[in-house]
């Protein structure tokens, strides 16, 4: 296909930080492999290289040593860079709970979490909940009680539900309803979600 990019790209410096004094330091520190030519691509690579910071974190029991831009949210890191797409984006603003993951055992919204701040933390996503082929009791309960329809909010619901029980906030139906209210289900499966959580809790298996 010989369609070209719509507008010619100028090779003038385009990075905020390249305009700043630190640019020279940056260039001096850049690995030689990315300093071969003066076109946009190379500048982008330089820019990309220096805008990233190293982060080490553990996801679902696996250690990751990553280099990421500080502006990358944990949600986008999981979905776009690590291809762990089980964690969902529903609103991107902490208003729906579809992105719920556990950080060091606590449920949080990954969309408002900067990945760069999670160095050293243990993150569990829906992909890390089952024990191999053996589903987590909460996952089983959601299937048994049909606690979902489209399935999109489901990973967040389940991660939230597991935490809800562990926190001791699943002592009554009303308790579950209140403490599961940070996870919106537009298909409206709340009745079944409450049943699933009660059942999983009653099951007594380790949650």
């Amino acid at each position: 296909m010989d369609k070209k990019v719509t507008t010619p790209i100028h090779s003038s410096a385009r990075r905020n930080f390249l305009k700043q004094s630190s640019a020279m330091v940056a260039l001096a520190l850049a690995p030689p492999t990315i300093l071969k030519a003066g076109d946009k691509k190379v500048e982008d690579q330089i820019a990309g290289y220096f805008e990233k910071v190293p982060v080490k974190l553990e996801i679902n029991g696996k250690a990751h040593a990553l280099s990421i831009e500080p502006r990358v949210t944990l949600l986008d890191l999981l979905r776009e860079q690590l291809h762990l797409t089980g964690t969902k984006k529903g609103c991107d603003h902490g208003q729906c709970g579809a992105c719920t993951v556990h950080i060091n055992g606590k449920r949080v919204n990954a969309c408002l979490t900067l990945a760069v701040m999670q160095g050293g933390n243990k993150i569990t996503t829906i992909e890390g909940l089952a024990n191999g082929d053996e589903l987590h009791p909460m996952q089983e309960a959601f299937i048994k009680h049909d606690g979902f329809q489209c399935g999109y909010c489901t990973p967040g619901q389940i991660m939230s539900a597991v935490a809800c029980v562990k926190e001791g906030h699943a002592e009554s139906d009303d308790d579950i309803r209140e403490y599961m209210s940070g996870n919106i289900c537009r298909c409206g499966c709340y009745t079944n979600i409450v049943d699933a959580i009660k059942d999983a809790k009653k099951g007594g298996k380790s949650l």
């Binding site: 797409t85 089980g86 964690t87 969902k88 992909e127 089952a130 589903l135 959601f142 399935g151 999109y152």
Partner: peptide, 14 residues
């Protein structure tokens, strides 16, 4: 169900 509760179900952005 299993695909949906494990996060393995793939939606259009995934």
């Amino acid at each position: 169900g299993k695909l949906k509760v494990t996060g393995a179900a793939k939606y259009s952005a995934e």
